[in-house]
Simulated assay, not measured.
Amino acid sequence: MAKVLYSAGISLDGFMTGPGGDMSWLTPYLGPNPQVEALIPQIGSLLVGRRTFDGDDPHKGGEGEGKAFGGGWEGPQYVVTHNPPDTTITDVTFVDDFGSALAQAKEAAGDKYVNVLGAGMGRQCLAAGQLDEIFVGIAPVLLGDGVRFFDLGGGNVKLERISQAELPLGTNLWFKIL
Rank of each mutant, 00 (worst) to 15 (best):
M1V: 12
K3W: 00
V4K: 01
Y6D: 05
I10N: 01
L12Y: 07
D13E: 13
D13K: 13
F15P: 02
M16R: 00
M16L: 15
M16W: 00
T17K: 06
G18M: 05
G18W: 04
G18P: 03
D22N: 15
L26C: 03
L26R: 04
T27V: 05
P28E: 10
Y29R: 01
Y29I: 00
G31N: 13
P32D: 14
V36H: 06
V36F: 11
E37G: 05
Q42W: 05
G44I: 11
F53V: 06
D56S: 15
H59D: 09
K60P: 01
K60W: 01
G64I: 08
G66S: 12
K67Q: 14
K67V: 06
G75A: 13
G75F: 13
G75Q: 12
G75M: 14
P76D: 12
Y78S: 02
H82P: 00
H82V: 02
P85K: 06
P85I: 03
I89H: 09
T93F: 04
V95E: 14
F98K: 07
G99V: 00
A101C: 08
A101L: 06
L102C: 10
Q104V: 02
A105V: 11
E107Q: 13
G110E: 08
G110Q: 09
V114R: 02
G118K: 09
M121T: 15
G122N: 10
A127V: 05
A128K: 12
D132V: 00
G137K: 15
I138Y: 06
A139F: 02
G144V: 05
D145C: 01
V147G: 02
L152A: 03
L152N: 02
L152C: 03
G153I: 07
G155S: 11
E160H: 04
A165D: 14
E166P: 01
L167K: 04
L169N: 13
T171P: 06
N172H: 09
F175C: 09
F175A: 07
K176V: 04
L178C: 03
